[in-house]
Computed example of a mutant assay.
Amino acid sequence: MTEQARRPLPHDYHPPVPEFTVVSDDVAPGATLKDDQVFAAGNVSPHLRWTGFPEETRSFAVTCYDPDAPTGSGFWHWVVFDIPASVTELPRGAGSAGFVGLPEGAVHARNDYGSKDFGGAAPPPGDGPHRYVFTVYAVDTEKLGPDSDTSPAAVGFNLRFHTLGRAQLIGEYEAPDGG
């Protein structure tokens, strides 16, 4: 992000909730995303596994958000919710074409690319490193309410009122200037 202050994360505007842990075989905190997690090179969603969430959790939601996108509102790369509470791990590619490993009943909402899947990193060339915030939400209801045609903002609105706990993992990606 050239000469701009880093923007806040979406849940910075939500009430505080307990934190739990999310880890990945594919994303290391603060490290560069893998090539196939980039829009032009594969759009493969990363493996995620979470622990330590509140006992009363009834379902989970997972999002990937770039707060540094030059849009004024960031960019939503992945929004999936109604993941059953018994599921504490998504395999690599669960949000990608075919949804292999995505649990039955989980709902993909539209991302900001307009598709209902994981859309990889795609910052403008030369814009500097962007953060890709993978967040797992512990939700107090089995069904969040929205359907797959709901915008990421509306899903976030529902999550604001139903989140019991939150875990996040942040990777980065920078497209070379090319000039």
Rank of each mutant, 00 (worst) to 15 (best):
V80C: 15
V80S: 14
V80G: 11
F81S: 07
F81Q: 02
F81D: 09
F81L: 07
D82E: 12
I83A: 09
I83N: 13
P84Y: 00
A85S: 03
A85E: 03
A85R: 02
A85D: 10
A85N: 00
V87I: 11
V87T: 13
V87R: 03
T88G: 09
T88D: 05
T88P: 04
E89T: 08
E89N: 09
L90T: 03
L90V: 08
P91N: 05
G93Q: 10
G95I: 05
G95V: 03
S96E: 08
A97L: 14
A97P: 14
A97Q: 14
F99C: 06
F99V: 09
G101L: 08
G101V: 06
G101H: 02
G101D: 04
G101N: 06
P103I: 03
P103Q: 02
G105H: 06
G105T: 12
A106W: 01
V107H: 00
H108N: 15
H108D: 10
A109M: 01
R110K: 14
D112T: 03
Y113R: 06
Y113Q: 08
Y113L: 15
Y113A: 14
S115C: 11
S115W: 04
K116D: 12
D117K: 11
F118M: 12
F118L: 14
F118K: 05
G120E: 07
A121P: 14
A121S: 13
A121G: 11
P123N: 00
P123T: 01
P124T: 06
D127G: 09
D127T: 06
D127Y: 09
P129W: 01
P129T: 02
Y132W: 09
Y132L: 14
V133F: 09
V133D: 06
V133L: 12
F134I: 13
T135Y: 10
T135W: 01
V136N: 04
V136T: 11
A138T: 08
V139Q: 09
V139P: 09
D140E: 11
D140Q: 02
T141G: 07
T141C: 05
T141H: 01
E142M: 10
E142V: 12
K143N: 07
K143G: 00
L144A: 13
G145I: 04
G145P: 05
D147V: 02
D147F: 06
S148G: 15
D149M: 12
D149V: 10
T150N: 06
P152A: 06
P152H: 00
P152E: 01
A153M: 07
A153R: 10
A154V: 10
A154G: 07
A154Q: 11
V155H: 08
G156I: 01
G156S: 05
G156N: 09
G156T: 02
G156V: 01
F157K: 15
F157P: 06
N158P: 01
L159S: 13
R160A: 15
F161M: 08
F161H: 15
F161C: 12
F161A: 14
F161Q: 08
H162R: 02
T163V: 07
T163P: 08
L164N: 08
L164Q: 04
L164G: 05
G165F: 00
R166D: 01
Q168P: 02
L169G: 06
L169Y: 07
L169S: 12
L169P: 04
I170V: 14
I170Y: 11
